[in-house]
Write a protein that binds this DNA or RNA. Structure first.
Lengths: 66, 66
DNA sequence: CTAAAATGTAAAATGCACTTTACATTTATA
DNA sequence: TATAAATGTAAAGTGCATTTTACATTTTAG
């Protein structure tokens, strides 16, 4: 699953470290999410979307299908 | 984290087994989610919300705050 | 150009989402 | 009221989200 975290983070002009602290995870987690290593948990997805002031559906790209 | 799965499932008049099959998980997973045993993954949250025709934010209740 | 800041990689450890199987209890219906 | 359908409990196993630590590379700024 893809996401627009890097895109929104740059719009907000903050570093990975700052975003990590803002949503209370490690920098590694932000790096892994931005680089598609794995998906966020539902809770983290919510904290990220809330931080950016958008919906989870706007921040994450769910490909439809089975 | 709480959710409105049972509520929406009943509105749709389907059983746990039918919902489980619709979103491609086991019945155990639906039971565990409805009874608050654990949270859904982001992907499953999306499939459930999509099935009910609502947003993830409408289906799950995120209490604010760290 | 050089130092500092930002980003990335790697790998081991932990916790939790989800599965599987089997059985028990509750609710609906003939 | 007896049976089936629906819901629930339990417990062990798997995979992945997240942490931690340490170091390497890239980008930015003086």
């Amino acid at each position: 699953m893809e996401n627009r975290i890097k895109e929104y983070r740059k719009q907000h002009k903050i570093t990975q470290d700052e975003l990590a602290k803002a949503v209370d995870v490690t920098r590694q987690t932000i790096i892994s999410l931005e680089n598609g290593k794995f998906d966020a948990s539902l809770k983290l997805a919510h904290r990220l979307a809330h931080y950016f002031g958008i919906s989870i559906e706007e921040l994450f790209i769910f490909e439809e299908e089975a």
